[in-house]
Structures are given as C-alpha cells and as structure tokens.
C-alpha cells in the first residue's frame, strides 16, 4: 500500500484483536515505514488506539484480550514465545494521552528508564538526562530545577517531560497516543515541531483526533473505521485525493 521505496520497521499481518466478545481490530495489514511520522486517524472507538497499543504490547494489561495474527518489528513477531516484553518496550517507547510524570523530581523521572535498565553511574545518568531533555526541547525551561517535582510543571511541560523520559531509553520507535489532545495550542505546536525534529532519528507513530495535525506533520496516514483499516498511504495524497468514499467523508468532516 505504501511507497515501495520506504523501508518498513513495523508490519502487521492479518492482525485481529478481541476484547472478550468485541472484535476491536479486523484483519489489519499495514507496513509502517522507518524514520517517518505515521498518523492514525478515525472516529472514537475505531480501533486506532487499540492498534497503537498492540505495537508495544500494552494491551497485554487489559483482562480478556485476545490477539490473532502477527505484528513484526524488524521482521520479528513481537507476540512470539521467546520475546521479552521489557526489551520490546525499551525499543518501542510510548507517550500517553494524559501526561503521566511520576511523583518524583524531574531528574528522577528522566533517569527512571535508564536506571530500570541498569545504568547506575551518576555521570552517565547526568549526560542522558541532559541529552533527553534537550531532545524534548525542554532543557532550557527546567535545567535550573531538575531536583524539583515534575508535578509542579504545566501540562505542556509535563508532556514534554514524558517525551524526554521515553527518549532516555533510546527507543527506535515512539508511539504517541493523542499526546497533544489535552494541551493548549502553543504547547501542541511545540510538540508537533518536536515530533518533526525527532523523525530524523526515530519512527513516530501517532494517534490523533486532529485532522489538521495529521495533515501538518505526518508523512503517512492510516484511516481506521469500526476496527478496519480503510486506507493507508501518503498523507498529502490521502487528504487531496482519498481513495475511499468513507475516508473522504471523514476528512471532509461529514462524520466522526
């Protein structure tokens, strides 16, 4: 479906997901290109967030979930028997809808991931914390208060702290689950700019309710409806000449 010249990092094959009786994802086949921003759009309940969470196996936490089919990360099935979920999540980081910094200092928030994976050296941690905060474009704002609680920051700053926290473990892919939906326009544009910056080194996959956002920053867009992947392709093409009537109806605002 997507441009053949792109290299794929994540691919799903005949992916089906059930929450008990509810068939939430139906035969999803998608190839997500590396070092690009891919936006997942669609009305509420269409399965886009569910799909995002299958990519780092956060759905494992939901009781009664059943998954069929394959999700390949660099060619390896992430639902395979010998896969270590913790190292998978280290490579595929996630930023949530609501900023969720831990009730600790800013420094400890960023150092949380590296410490989890065994980095103890103070010098090494200092370096990671600074680099991550710089990458998340928040270093200048917080460098003098690293030992203050992260909960004292504004919503937009907290969300960038969460991005920095995710970057600190040096993931390959960054999943963003409507990460700007709770933020004001200025914070939102900062994070959008950040995402465009990050795609040089990371693959970004973002769920968004904001069509303008998808159009502004994503390279590829996937449109989900009622658990199906209706259309996936180059964002510009999709928004100017959608291939499916339903996509057209959605992006022109006739439903959703």
């Amino acid at each position: 479906m997507c441009d053949n010249s792109e290299k794929t990092i994540i691919q799903s094959k005949k992916l089906n997901l059930y929450y008990g009786e509810n068939h939430a994802l139906k035969d999803i086949d998608i190839e997500i290109p590396v070092n690009r921003i891919t936006a997942l759009i669609g009305p509420s309940g269409c399965g886009k967030s569910t799909f995002l969470k299958t990519l780092n196996r956060m759905n494992d936490l939901v009781p009664g979930v059943k998954i069929d089919g394959q999700v390949l990360y660099r060619g390896e099935d992430i639902y395979g028997r010998e896969v270590d979920v913790t190292s998978l999540r280290r490579q595929i980081g996630m930023v949530f809808q609501k900023a969720n910094p831990f009730p600790m200092s800013i420094y400890d928030n960023i150092a949380y991931g590296p410490r989890t994976h065994g980095i103890r050296s103070r010098a090494r941690l200092d370096e990671i914390v600074e680099r991550s905060l710089r990458d998340a474009a928040i270093w200048e704002e917080v460098k003098d208060r690293l030992n203050k609680s992260a909960l004292g920051l504004s919503g937009g700053q907290q969300q960038r702290i969460c991005i920095a926290r995710a970057l600190a473990v040096e993931p390959q892919v960054l999943l963003m689950d409507e990460s700007t939906s709770a933020l004001d326009p200025i914070s939102t544009s900062k994070i959008e700019e950040l995402a465009m910056e990050l795609k040089n080194r990371y693959t970004v996959i973002m769920v968004t309710h904001n069509m303008q956002q998808a159009l502004r920053i994503s390279d590829y867009t996937a449109f989900f409806l009622l658990g199906e992947l209706v259309e996936f392709g180059d964002t510009q093409t999709m928004f100017s000449k959608p291939g499916d009537k339903r996509t057209e109806a959605y992006i022109t605002g006739r439903f959703g």
């Binding site: 999540r89 910094p101 949380y112 991931g113």
Partner: peptide, 27 residues
C-alpha cells in the same frame, strides 16, 4: 495510585516488581 503511573513504568520496559517497588509503593 493512578493507573497511569503503572502504565508509564511498564511502557519504559520496567518489570512488574520494578514498577511496584519504584512507583507504586513510594506513592
């Protein structure tokens, strides 16, 4: 303890006990 703390810790690749010890118990 908010569920989002647990999710945050697990999403960074923390094991379950690590999550309990470093995030859930202190809060």
């Amino acid at each position: 303890v908010p569920q989002s703390y647990r999710e945050g810790s697990l999403a960074l690749g923390g094991g379950k006990w690590h999550m309990v010890r470093t995030v859930v118990l202190p809060s």
